[in-house]
């Protein structure tokens, strides 16, 4: 945690967060005097999810995701907390940068959606073409901007040229220089109602999407695919697919175990808010599920490292994922019935 001064002369507290989008939303609201923690935003915005997209390939491997689509957490949580945000996209990069400078001069901090490859302050091995990383711009400095990237421990400087490239990068999920900042906030939002809405939405997304690739069904689908993968793709190909799952689970700023720990933190906070022992119990269960996901990651890494020489096999990894699917199905079903009884 460190304190910065924004262009408006107000102190800005930078908090280290696990996930960029929930961290940025939380920071923008904190700047307006609404103190809501990152896991709370994540839960209210229904951030937790699972999906496997067999037909979308990035760098030759299919994509699995442990979160809802980029932008959803911000959009949903703002709506549920009754906050109005001003959002803008631009066709012309120059106009986009001018608009950013104008807003910064009024003393307002701004959230941006960027491409992580062009943000040069990241370690090289984490820079890949992904157009969904969120940062907060604090103020303009000479030849650049002061950024608060929630994934880092402290604010950083970023050259203006890099930021322009990052904002207007092309490719899948193009952000078109997307920028957002609060117009009006509710100082004492109805957290209880927002939490209930968020949890209900999450349960629906995990349990009731009638497609085999999303939610719990997606997990089962992927687990079966992992077990079969060495026969279908060969050992190398199977390793590549497996490593991409683990990367999505651990590497891309999830707070550990593909957001499962962060959701457990949300459930814990919600349990205090409602004084509900049921939610506290569910939080503990979620932590246990997270531990199984971590084990899945360890097993996968062992398979990849030992190149098929060890006793751990793809069956074991797929089996662990199957266990996760079963446990999560149980959890979200009981969460659904617990939420039904909660009063806003």
């Amino acid at each position: 945690m460190s304190v910065e001064i924004t262009a408006g002369g107000k102190p800005f507290i930078h908090k280290h967060s696990a996930h960029c989008e929930s961290g940025v939303t939380s920071a923008l609201l904190r700047d307006k005097g609404v103190e809501i923690s990152e896991p709370m935003i994540f839960g209210i915005g229904s951030g937790i999810f699972f999906g496997h997209l067999p037909f979308v390939k990035m760098a030759g491997v299919t994509i699995s995701t442990f979160r809802s689509q980029p932008g959803a957490v911000f959009r949903k949580s703002a709506k549920r907390l009754g906050c109005k945000f001003i959002t803008a996209r631009f066709r012309n990069p120059q106009k986009g940068m001018d608009a950013l400078r104008r807003v910064l001069q009024t003393g307002q901090i701004v959230g941006l959606t960027t491409n992580i490859y062009w943000l040069s302050y990241f370690p090289n091995r984490f820079r890949f073409q992904f157009n969904g990383h969120n940062v907060v711009v604090l103020h303009e400095i000479e030849n650049g901007f002061r950024l608060s990237d929630p994934m880092l421990e402290s604010p950083v400087d970023c050259p203006a040229e890099d930021l322009e490239r990052a904002r207007f990068a092309h490719g899948p999920l193009e952000s078109h220089g997307f920028m957002y900042y609060p117009q009006s906030v509710v100082l004492a939002p109805d957290l209880r109602r927002a939490c209930i809405e968020g949890m209900k939405d999450t349960c629906n997304m995990m349990l009731r999407i009638p497609l085999p690739i999303f939610g719990i069904r997606g997990m089962r689908f992927l687990a079966k695919k992992v077990i079969k993968s060495p026969d279908k793709l060969g050992f190398q190909g199977a390793c590549r697919e497996l490593s991409s799952i683990v990367r999505m689970q651990e590497e891309v700023g999830t707070g550990g175990a593909g957001f499962r720990y962060m959701y457990a933190a949300f459930l814990q906070e919600a349990a205090e808010l409602f004084g509900s022992d049921d939610l506290a119990l569910l939080s503990a269960k979620m932590t246990a599920i997270g531990d199984i996901w971590r084990e899945f990651a360890i097993v996968s890494a062992r398979i990849i490292k030992q190149r098929g020489q060890s006793e751990v096999t793809f069956d074991k990894a797929g089996g662990l994922m199957m266990i996760c699917a079963g446990r999560e199905e149980e959890l979200f079903r009981s969460l659904r019935s617990v939420v039904g009884k909660l009063k806003a």
């Binding site: 280290h16 967060s17 720990y261 814990q268 932590t287 990651a297 990849i304």
Partner: peptide, 26 residues
Amino acid sequence: ACYALNDEGKYVIVPSSGWDVEAVVN
């Protein structure tokens, strides 16, 4: 940042310097 339970069973943010497993897959 990683979310983990402290001694009182509360979730807190703990900074992590790296995990072997990630190094392998990355």
